[in-house]
Amino acid sequence: MLEEKQIPYIVEKINMRCYGPKPPDFMAKVPTGLLPVLELDGGPPITESLRIMVLLEQEFPDHKPLVPRGNSQEVQRWEQLMRLERRLFSDWLGWACSDWNQAMGKVRCEALLDTIEKELKVAGGPFFFGKDISLADINMVPMFERMVASLAYYKGFFIRGTGRWPAIEAWFAALEQRPTYLGTHSDYYQHCHDLPPQMGGLYFSDEGYPVAAQIDGMDGQSWRLPLPPLSATSLPEPFSAGDSPPVDTLEAAASLIKNHEAVARFALRGVGKPGPRPVSAPLSDPTAIPALEHMAAADMALRHVAHALLVGVDEKQVSEHALQVTASEPSGPAAELTGMPIIPAAAYLRDRIGVPRDMRFPAARQLRAHLNWLADSLVAAVA
Score class of each variant (00 low, 15 high):
Pro228Gln: 15
Val318Met: 08
Glu320Asn: 11
Ala281Tyr: 10
Ile353His: 04
Arg352Ala: 01
Leu235Trp: 13
Arg277Gly: 07
Ile257Ala: 13
Ala335Tyr: 08
Ser280Phe: 11
Arg303Phe: 00
Ala252Ile: 05
His260Ser: 11
Thr249Arg: 15
Val355Gln: 05
Ala296Arg: 03
Arg265His: 03
Val279Glu: 02
Val279Trp: 05
Ser328Pro: 04
Gly339Pro: 00
Val355Pro: 01
Arg277Ile: 15
Pro229Thr: 14
Asn259Leu: 10
Thr338Pro: 02
Ala241Val: 08
Ser331Met: 08
Ala322Val: 04
Gly354Phe: 13
Val247Tyr: 06
Ala347His: 14
Lys273Tyr: 06
Met300Val: 03
Glu336His: 06
Asp358Tyr: 03
Leu337Arg: 02
Ser331Asn: 09
Ala345Met: 01
Pro276Ser: 09
Ala308Lys: 06
Leu309Ile: 07
Pro356Val: 13
Gly312His: 04
Leu235Gln: 14
Asp314Ile: 05
Ser284Glu: 15
Val311Lys: 09
Leu323Arg: 02
Gln324Glu: 07
Gly270Lys: 03
Pro278Asp: 10
Pro246His: 15
Ala347Phe: 11
Arg303Ser: 09
Glu329Asp: 15
Gly270Phe: 00
Pro356Lys: 00
Thr338His: 10
Arg352Met: 08
Ala298His: 00
Ala288Asp: 02
Gly242Gln: 11
Val271Lys: 01
Gln317Pro: 04
Pro245Lys: 09
Ala281Gln: 10
Thr249Ala: 13
Pro229Ser: 10
Val318Glu: 14
Ala306Cys: 06
Ala306Gln: 09
Leu292Met: 10
Ala297Ile: 03
Val279Pro: 07
Thr338Asn: 02
Leu250Phe: 11
Ala262Tyr: 07
Ala346Asn: 08
Val263Tyr: 01
Ala252Leu: 04
Asp285Tyr: 04
Met300Ile: 01
Ser280Glu: 10
Asp351Trp: 09
Ile257Trp: 05
Leu230Lys: 06
Leu337Asn: 00
Val355Glu: 02
Val247Glu: 11
Thr287Ala: 02
Pro341Lys: 06
Ala345Pro: 04
Val313Met: 02
Thr233Trp: 15
His294Pro: 08
Ala252Trp: 02
Ser331Glu: 14
Pro282Gly: 06
Ser331Leu: 06
Ser240Asp: 03
Gly275Ser: 06
Lys258Ser: 12
Pro274Val: 08
Met340Ser: 15
His307Ile: 04
Pro341Trp: 00
His304Gln: 08
Gly354Cys: 13
Pro356His: 03
Ala306Thr: 07
Val325His: 07
Asp351Gly: 11
Leu230Gly: 04
Leu323Gly: 01
Ala322Asp: 12
Ile257Asp: 15
Ser284Gln: 15
Ala241Phe: 05
Lys316Gly: 08
Val279Leu: 10
Val271Asp: 00
Leu309Lys: 03
Ser244Ile: 07
Leu268Gln: 00
Glu329Ile: 14
Asp285Ala: 05
Arg265Leu: 01
Ala241Tyr: 06
Arg357Trp: 14
Asp243Leu: 09
